[in-house]
């Protein structure tokens, strides 16, 4: 059983930021399309982790907890900040070194959040439909429909751009 020590040490902070920092940042950045907001949510998520000192069964449980907290905070932030600036494709160079990825990332960022989140969790983090349903507290059929619809929207977006 993976248990966070009561009164976390500096090593705990180093470990969770090094292990999960990139993953949480990229999820938050793609959902919020804003670096400052993404940083705030990642910071809040780690502070939540440190203050609540949750107990985990294993590292997967720990990762799932962090994703759930971060995505919920992203949703809340979106609710209260409706007018967000979409990251310009040029700005992606700040975060991604892979030039070929810019186009795909841009299409992904323009997706409505409910589709974006399930696509990220499925294709990027490798979660299965049932696991995503548990993480997001929605039904499995809703996850399947969001995956299906998200794929269709991205395909159409690609087709329009290339036609």
């Amino acid at each position: 059983m993976l248990q966070q020590a009561v009164g976390s040490t500096g090593q705990d902070i180093e470990r969770i930021v090094d292990t999960y920092g990139n993953m949480l940042f990229r999820i938050c950045l793609l959902i919020l399309c804003n670096e400052n907001d993404a940083e705030d949510v990642v910071q809040d998520t780690f502070i939540n982790y440190l203050t609540k000192s949750p107990t985990f069964h294993d590292s997967e449980h720990e990762k799932a907890w962090l994703i759930t907290v971060a995505t919920n905070r992203c949703k809340n932030m979106r609710r209260f900040n409706l007018m967000r600036r979409h990251i310009d494709i040029c700005d992606l160079q700040l975060y991604s070194k892979d030039v070929e990825s810019y186009g795909l990332l841009d299409h992904l960022m323009k997706l409505p959040n409910k589709y974006k989140i399930v696509l990220l969790l499925n294709y990027v983090e490798g979660y299965k439909v049932d696991e995503i349903a548990t993480l997001l507290n929605i039904t499995s059929s809703a996850v399947k429909k969001r995956l299906q619809r998200g794929r269709v929207i991205i395909r159409e977006s690609y087709r329009k751009e290339n036609s």
């Binding site: 930021v17 990229r26 910071q43 991604s96 990027v124």
Partner: peptide
């Protein structure tokens, strides 16, 4: 998509600030 998204990294300045 996996490779594209995983190519995103948290800038070191932000990582240091979070820590």
């Amino acid at each position: 998509m996996k490779d594209a998204v995983k190519s995103i990294e948290m800038p070191e300045t932000i990582k240091s600030r979070v820590k």
